[in-house]
């Protein structure tokens, strides 16, 4: 009899335990939902402000692992983020604007000055002779004097007006050397965490975000489409 009682007590305790844990889990879910709702409201409010006019804007959906170029709430282009690292806590409230694009070698426009020696560039749109058949060919056959996507850098950084510094690069362009990896590990995992303690002060503790993309064309396209002053939101 006492064994039965003990077994019953154990069963009751287990059931009660399950019940309590379920209640706690439900509470956590509700908490998560309320956080998500708060985030959604803030993101939509910020986007609505940007979508009111006809200007393009971006959405850095870091949690959703994507960057989007939009206009009036419509997604024009979307790039999947393959990897990311983050340091610091910037102020994300509302919208941000791109203050500066920085790269080691910025693409340069070709300048044509007719009549001068240096202006002897191939004009890509040169007309064929009248009646001459146009032969379709692959784009690789023409080395054009033009500023194209492939001329854009595969690695660059974006500085926003809220102080956020974003480095964008492609995984394929990664330097695999040991020295480069050590330097990278030192910077991200030692220098940055130590900088508030032993660094030169707050200047070194700016928030940083590193975004990595699978295809090199993705950073190049982002460089192409993100012009100085473009506004956006960071989620």
């Amino acid at each position: 009899m006492s064994r039965k009682k003990a077994a019953g007590a154990v069963l009751a305790a287990v059931v009660a335990g399950f019940g309590l844990s379920s209640l706690a889990a439900a509470g956590r879910v509700a908490e998560v939902d309320r956080s998500a709702l708060a985030r959604k409201q803030e993101a939509l409010t910020a986007e609505y402000g940007l979508a009111k006019d006809a200007n393009f804007y971006f959405v850095f959906d870091v949690e959703g692992r994507k960057i989007e170029l939009r206009v009036k709430g419509m997604v024009l282009r979307s790039w999947h983020i393959a990897g990311m690292r983050f340091w610091g806590r910037p102020d994300f409230a509302g919208t941000v604007a791109l203050a500066r694009k920085t790269t080691l070698k910025a693409p340069e426009r070709i300048i044509i000055k007719p009549g001068q020696e240096e202006s002897l560039v191939k004009v890509p749109a040169a007309k064929p002779a009248a009646g001459q058949a146009v032969t379709p060919a692959t784009s690789a056959d023409y080395d054009l004097e033009a500023l194209e996507l492939r001329d854009m850098p595969g690695k660059f950084s974006l500085d926003f007006d809220n102080g956020l510094h974003v480095t964008i690069r492609a995984r394929s362009g990664e330097a695999p050397g040991l020295a480069a990896r050590l330097k990278d590990a030192w910077r991200w995992y030692v220098a940055m965490p130590l900088s508030p303690v032993v660094g030169k002060g707050r200047a070194k503790t700016r928030p940083e975000l590193e975004l990595v993309f699978e295809d090199e064309k993705d950073p190049q396209a982002i460089y192409w489409h993100f012009f100085d002053g473009i506004k956006g939101i960071i989620l």
Binding site: A30, R34, A38, E42, R85, W87, P193
Partner: peptide, 25 residues
């Protein structure tokens, strides 16, 4: 110090900060 900073950096660098408090019930 090196180990602690590595640990802190690794943690901070892999977690996107949650910044908006949940709304009241």
């Amino acid at each position: 110090v090196f180990g602690a900073s590595y640990f802190i950096g690794l943690k901070a660098a892999s977690a996107w900060p949650v910044r908006i408090p949940p709304i009241a019930e």
